[in-house]
Design a protein around this nucleic acid. Structure first.
Lengths: 191, 191, 191, 191
DNA sequence: AATTAATCGAGACGGTACGTCGTGTCTTAAA
DNA sequence: TTTAAGACACGACGTACCGTCTCGATTAATT
């Protein structure tokens, strides 16, 4: 599956990186999260364990790298209303987290609880997503339908909190529409 | 620290259970979650490993037992307004989770991501807390200030989602008042 | 080759010990000393590495145990003269060290240079052999052919020194008779 | 500690050799033999690992080079008697091997048990020393006090064997005089 | 003067073995 | 029958060196 790869000098070999992430991704799909051990990944990627630890000092960092590689830039479509946008976001998240490549995420959150490096990496990613999520509120503001006295950050966090909660308790089949309605009703100007 | 305890015959020894939970609690406080291994708990409690496994088949079950022992029935005081109640709940949670005995909870959530038994136990606990949380909405309803078309469950989940999010990303110093305001504004009748 | 072996309670399982020593002996014969790694021995013996380390804390200790198991009580035959006895002893040692089960010994000496536990174990064994070697001088004394002003210990050490030297430099084909003659000539009464 | 050294063209840089041997010697003194790894030496000498391997293909070769650099031509003083000479030789060896720069030697013997290149190098060195040792017997012969039917080689080997034995078992505080007496008594003409 | 060739440092690479730790199962001997 | 104790097989951990490699630089000898 993987060819022999030697050093390409005193610098990182991108082929090795790819092989490792591929291996981790495959194992993840085949055996689930608990199968993704540094040992197994190294063996599958035909890489030395030291090589893994050189670039991904913890298992969490490796998982994070695997997850980020998949971030197929989830764009939030403009549905015309804030409630519709929130609903779409939730649905897209629930859907993504239900699929094999997204299933890792809850384990990343879990691992980040006892791995400070990962926590930092996750936080970076989370803030990035949060900013991205902010766009739907900007759109609502431009439409002039948004109450101006609600901080966009707060609203985005509320959406994210609901999403994470459902992810972590395994309720990805929840009613996104209902959730969206409950959240959004106080954020738009009463019509 | 713990005295010698032998078998008390062909039945469960409650002293042993206490000793085990005490040991786990102490280790948790001293070394953090990663120190709480079945091995270490057994040794500290002067209990056989088999004894542990008999009653708490997984590490997660043991952690959950430790956490539940501490559930000093958090009551939600009536502040007179829903927003005040939500703010109080968040503050009380953030405070509890910041203290040593509460710090475990995020690790329980984490562990439950790969331990189905624990997930079930946590879910039971979570629903219990959710029901308890529902009381503040009942009170609001009795006051007549609640919009009737918002499901109580949904609102409680939104509060819980915000709380968990802040717990899991280590932002227990967040502005509970602001969060409460953002959430609640759509749930009460416009005055 | 080896069946499954579980614990037999809170005490050492002699079957395990035997399996480990057998495995080490076999590997030694097949791959030589450098093949005798704790890892390989554990795998071959179907034993956990922890089990090995429990009973033989270092590789040297394990090698020593392997060697001692083979100590087929080398008796020194009475040839009638001290020179004959010394020659017989040297020949028997050179022969033993040339055979597979004896070849380990030089590696034990080597390992003992950087392993204090092993050094101690080897020293015990060495003194034991030295005492045993002393018998040939007692016999000579009884025969009345021994100069009384030469300490038996010193003579035994001289024999051992010659033996070890030849072992360590790989000259086990040396002329035992000549060595014996050179050493002994000052130890017996001039006839 | 060591300045930057670059290539001096298509030939060996003698500064590098010196830096490497210095580094090895220092590490040896500081951390003992087990600290002398190719990796550590290279790092300390600010040399590339490939450079080390180019000139000293094995660890043993490097150790041997370190030892030989120190061979401060031990001369054997003429004490007037063979016994005195042997005693002086033993004392000088025991003393040398007790000092930091001599302590390596036992590790060289040890390493040579599993490193054929080193074994060869050590054997060369040993024969050289053996020849040197022969001088004291030549002197005795010239004095006319030596039994003529004892081969000089054999006697030298007996002395060396005793010396090595005491080195390898850590008995460098042994009674050189006694050893000398025991060995020599058969080699000189009965007075 | 330009080119070639060997050397240098650095350090990444695939590996192997290390020694430790935790898992969950097992047996014993005592209560 | 349950207990404390702890040995057992297993497997992952994270580290240390191994010996090989490729790089980009430096410099001497050759063109």
């Amino acid at each position: 599956m993987t060819e022999k790869r030697a050093s390409i000098g005193a610098r990182r070999n991108p082929e090795t990186e790819a092989a490792v992430l591929d291996a981790a991704t495959e194992i993840l799909a085949e055996k689930g999260i608990s199968g993704v051990t540094m040992e197994a990944v190294a063996k599958r990627a035909r890489a030395g364990k030291a090589t893994l630890y050189r670039w991904w000092p913890t298992r969490g960092a490796l998982l994070m790298a695997v997850y980020r590689r998949r971030k197929q830039e989830i764009c939030h479509p403009d549905t015309g209303t804030l409630e519709g946008d929130v609903k779409a976001v939730l649905e897209s998240l629930f859907d993504h987290w239900s699929r094999p490549e997204g299933r890792v995420f809850r384990h990343i959150i879990a691992a980040s609880q006892s791995d400070d490096d990962l926590r930092e990496a996750l936080e970076d990613y989370r803030l990035e997503r949060l900013a991205h999520l902010g766009e739907i509120f900007e759109r609502a503001a431009q439409r002039g339908t948004l109450s101006d006295d609600v901080p966009a950050q707060e609203m985005a966090r509320a959406v994210m909190g609901m999403a994470w909660l459902h992810l972590l308790v395994g309720r990805l089949d929840a009613d996104a529409a209902g959730i969206a309605r409950t959240l959004v009703r106080g954020w738009v100007r009463p019509s």
